[in-house]
Structure formats: C-alpha cells, structure tokens
C-alpha cells in the first residue's frame, strides 16, 4: 500500500513537472517567434509554435495537448496583427486532430509527426496567403507565395525535428510510460487502472 501511494505521488509529481516544462517550452517558443529571437533568412522567419504544438499533441495526453494548443495560439495572438483569437482557434483544432489521430490511427514516430506538422503548417500558410492576397485590389500574389510563404514553410519544417526531440526528451524524462503507448502493469488492479487513467 505504501509503495503504491509513493508510486502514485511520484507519477503525479512527474506529470506536473512534465506539463510545467512543456508550458515553459511553449512560452519560450512564443517569445522566440514573436520577439523575435530566431534569425531571419532573406527576410523569412519560421513559425516555431506550429511544429511545437504538433509535437506536444503527438507525445502528450489528449486533454493537456489541447490545452497547450490553446495556450500556444493565445500567445501567438498576443503579438499578432489581428488579435481576435484566430490562432488560438486554429492551434486548438490542430492539437485536437493530431491527438485524436495519434490515439486511434497512427504510431508515434518522426515521420508521422513530420506529415502532421507539414499538413498543419501548409494549411496555415496557404490560408494566410489566400487571405492576404484577397485584400481588395491585390488579387492572388503568386510571387509572394514563392518568395515568402513557401520559404517560410520550409524553414518551419526544418525546425520540426528539433521540436519533436525536445518534447520527447521532456516526456521521456518525466514519464514512466513508454512514449505514445499505454502499458498494462501486471499485479494490483488499482495500479493498472491508475496507469490507464494516466
């Protein structure tokens, strides 16, 4: 009983620590993107929050992942030109979809994360390009797409492996579960249910 209680409080502590570290990562990424700390190449900057949210959604549990998505989106909106909460909505939906896909369909590996990250980033950037270009009198600006938005997509995808490995390192260090899998412990039923609830 004592071992069970100690183990349970230890898991809680790890859980809180993991979420604190991920929260700090999201905050750091928001500062790096918005301040900005990330260097620009030929005037192009990366969207660091997108790959980070996808990585968290893939590696973390569903509910916290959605919350982190909302947090990342809100932090993005604080510095955005249009602070009406569109990025918060977008990243929340992305986090939810990625978390659900990982739960029911995909295995967790870099390729899967890469595909999901690419889809999310491409969707965001094409939507931005379309909205920016359709301002009255501008029309679809293909030159801007080639010179600005596509390079931005490439730069963002280049940072995705870094985000994935960082989040995976945090989750691994602070979790006794195998990453992305539910394990069943033999023995005490209470422990099994506790592990499943986690």
């Amino acid at each position: 009983m004592l071992a069970y209680t100690t183990a349970r409080s230890g898991k809680k502590r790890n859980r809180y620590l993991r979420r604190l570290l991920l929260g700090l990562l999201v905050l750091f990424a928001a500062m790096a993107q918005n301040v900005p700390w990330l260097p620009a190449f030929f005037g192009v900057r990366a969207l660091l929050l997108l790959p980070l949210v996808v990585s968290i959604a893939v590696l973390e549990q569903e509910v916290p992942a959605i919350c982190f998505g909302a947090l990342a989106g809100l932090l993005w909106d604080v510095s955005a030109q249009d602070p009406r909460g569109w990025h918060a909505l977008f990243l929340t939906v992305i986090a939810f979809i990625c978390a659900m896909l990982m739960r029911y369909l995909f295995n967790c590996n870099l390729l899967t994360v890469g595909l999901l990250g690419f889809a999310a980033a491409a969707l965001y950037l094409f939507a931005r390009w379309a909205l920016d270009s359709l301002v009255p009198g501008v029309g679809l600006d293909f030159e801007a797409l080639l010179r600005f938005y596509l390079p931005r997509l490439v730069y963002t995808m280049a940072l995705l492996p870094l985000c994935y490995w960082l989040v995976r390192a945090v989750v691994r260090k602070t979790s006794r579960r195998q990453v992305g899998e539910h394990i069943k412990e033999e023995g005490n039923i209470g422990q099994i249910r506790a592990a499943e609830r986690e």
């Binding site: 932090l75 604080v78 602070p83 009406r84 909460g85 918060a88």
Partner: peptide
C-alpha cells in the same frame, strides 16, 4: 482584441 487574448 478578444478578451481571452487581452487577459493573457
């Protein structure tokens, strides 16, 4: 701005 964004 959205109230949630303003609060944050």
């Amino acid at each position: 701005a959205s109230p949630v964004v303003s609060a944050l």
